[in-house]
Amino acid sequence: MAFLDLKNVSKSYGDTPVLQGIDLAVEEGEFLVLLGFSGTGKTTLVNLMAGLEMPTKGEVLFKGRPVTEPGPERGVIFQNYSLMPWLTVNGNVGLAVDTMFPELSRAERAAKVAHYVGMVGLSHAAGRRPAELSGGMRQRVNVARALAMDPEMLLLDEPLSALDALTRGNLAEEIEKIWEADKKTCVLITNDVDEAILLADRVVMMTNGPRATIGKITEVGLPRPRTRKALLEHPDYYAYRQEVLDFLEEYEHGNQSKHASGAAPKPKAVAAETPKAVAAE
């Protein structure tokens, strides 16, 4: 039994189909990266996993039980920071600490908040409000808040997309480091190939919408801990990169390709990962 299981999940908003026939098993402790073009329905997929949206068809199982509502056991790092503008960094992180550990004393609470704020390197800005932070700093607060929920798994919706390339690379490495520390199950969404390869155990590539589904899954066997520099020097890196880019090229310019309209996912790649799903088709 997988940790988080999506079984033949489809989602439409009214008459608008977004996702169709998604079968995906996220294993405990793995770092899964979902890669797809903008507007394909990645956020929708994360919302389904988090329980913020319900699937129109199929089901989402977390540790074998259907997901019916969101909860702190599946921490979400939202795409657009979503920080409370009237709270300081400490206040925003404290919000998560409060829900998870309501019985803490004042000092214990402060220590816990300081721990998570320090973890993302924001101790010097703990008293500032989001308006006084840079985009990268806000995203760090977002990360710290999710970590403070002490979730069983983390859902990261394009945590780095709004950042400039330099900050982006640094923060990606930091996320890798934080993940290395306790190997929590992670699902991260991105539209950046290098980021995907840097972080992923498996890269799940989505076809273009509407009716987006899983096109291909690539396992990334590069050694950890990974840094951008080490990756560039690794002989296999370019092969992985090429594989992902080839797939994306096929779907560029909204090209629907043969199977996207026919609903059957690319058999070869998916068969390797989720044989049952193909049998069900």
Binding site: N47, A50, L52, E69, P70, G71, P72, R74, G75, V76, F78, S82, M84, L95, A96, T99, M149
Partner: peptide, 9 residues
């Protein structure tokens, strides 16, 4: 922000 409050239950 409403979503945040939901995730935080």
């Amino acid at each position: 922000l409403v979503n945040v409050s939901k995730v935080l239950k």
